[in-house]
Simulated scan of single mutants.
Amino acid sequence: MKLYVPHVGHMEGLRSLLEGSDDIYAVYMAGSPDYIGTGRTNLSAPSIEDIAEQVEYAHSKNVKLEIVLNSSCMGGQQLSPEGYRTISWYFDRLNEMEVDSVTVADPYLVEMLSRDYDIEVVVSVLSFVDSPQKAMFYEELGADTIVVDPVVNRDFQKLEAIKESVSCNLKLLVNEGCLYQCPFRYAHFNFFSHANGPGPKPNVLDDYYYYKCLSIRLRDPEQIIKSPWIRPEDLPHYLPITDTFKIGGRTHFINWILNTVNAYSNQHYDGNLLDLLDSIRDLREVFEIPNSELDGTIKQWENCSKNCKKCGYCKRLSEKVVRVIER
């Protein structure tokens, strides 16, 4: 089993990660937002020199290093002569320092990397590959690996169809805590891409999408159960699809990352499921979901019809296992 683990982007953090666990196959981190943005907030902005140093250190520990440049919107700059030259220059530097893989969301960059560089091309989860047809298009563009949209994490029929349709590698994001079929997803990642990319940056006062999403789950905890996370105990059910799993959470502290790595490496966690989920850290202060009480739920989700109104399984389950933390 190969675990791709989030890294905050500085050397001290990388040392702490690799000294704290022997179960890390690869780490991934954002590149510099001066060149291409990412779909998440950057806690650090590593320079060319920083990345080179960290690549060398990771390789000395037999760990791969991946750079994430998965902006979902660059305002068309990637197609301008100036933007193309800037991106090419940055890709040249990453290739020279032997970065193992680069994750991008824009199809143009997928094709550019595949055509011009000897580097593994990873299609981001923000490319929203949720069907065999879309996977085939990206493979034709040059994808070596596709991170499948988590929206189909519990649709085993579709996952199997995607696997059968392409020869490239597949990677599953296991612990994203976003809403299932989230209506804010595209707009939210576009906002992040501009806020965490080359200027001009938007001057905003608050993150509407985050707080709207949070408020929905506070009112309706059933949505937490519907979210397409994969429990550590359920990884064996996905091995016929892939043996490569990505842990989300590059905006978290090292101790959180290591705790999550340990849970997925051991395929067991005895505690609050929300401890492991990315992007909903505020909910951990409100709700508890004993992970052990979710044993066996995968059997329902392996055959889920996705007709929530008719089924009602997640609603009943949430009423049983989601508990409000008393203060």
Rank of each mutant, 00 (worst) to 15 (best):
R217P: 01
W256E: 11
D130Y: 06
C314A: 15
S131K: 04
H194G: 13
P33E: 12
D207A: 12
Q223L: 02
Y57V: 04
L274P: 00
P107V: 08
M97A: 10
V286M: 02
E233V: 03
P183M: 06
S32N: 13
K306G: 14
P202L: 06
L294V: 01
P236M: 03
I247R: 10
T244W: 02
Y209H: 08
F156G: 15
I67G: 15
V110D: 00
A161K: 07
D220R: 08
A30H: 13
K306Y: 11
N203H: 08
N169S: 09
E319I: 00
A26R: 04
S47C: 14
S279T: 07
D116W: 04
I230M: 02
Y209D: 11
L69C: 14
N259F: 03
E49V: 13
Y313S: 14
D22M: 02
D144M: 06
V174S: 10
S265H: 04
I119D: 07
H237W: 03
L218S: 05
H10C: 04
S44W: 04
C311Q: 11
R219K: 11
L258Y: 07
S21H: 06
R115C: 08
L205I: 05
V99R: 05
Y269H: 07
T242P: 10
W256C: 07
I289Y: 00
Q300C: 15
Y186K: 11
R185Q: 14
A30V: 09
E49N: 12
D282G: 08
R217I: 00
S167V: 02
I298P: 08
V147R: 15
V147N: 14
P236E: 10
S80D: 07
E82C: 05
T103Q: 06
L276P: 01
Y4K: 11
E293A: 13
E111H: 09
L159P: 01
M74L: 10
E233Q: 09
I67M: 09
G13L: 02
D118R: 11
N42Y: 02
L235S: 12
I254Y: 04
V151P: 05
K212M: 12
N196G: 07
H188I: 04
I216F: 09
M112G: 11
H59L: 03
L172T: 07
V102N: 12
C314R: 02
Y186G: 14
E326T: 12
S72R: 00
P228H: 13
R323C: 06
N42R: 09
G197L: 00
K226W: 02
L94S: 13
M1C: 08
L170M: 05
G312A: 15
W256I: 04
L277K: 01
N303C: 14
I87T: 12
N190C: 08
R219C: 13
P240A: 04
A187D: 15
P183N: 13
L317C: 08
I289A: 14
H10L: 01
N255C: 05
V99I: 05
Y138R: 10
G177R: 03
V148D: 05
M1W: 00
E326A: 13
V151H: 13
L235R: 02
Q77D: 11
E302D: 09
S265L: 01
I24F: 06
L65A: 08
R323A: 10
E12C: 00
T103K: 04
N307T: 11
A143L: 03
E53G: 08
N196M: 02
R250Q: 09
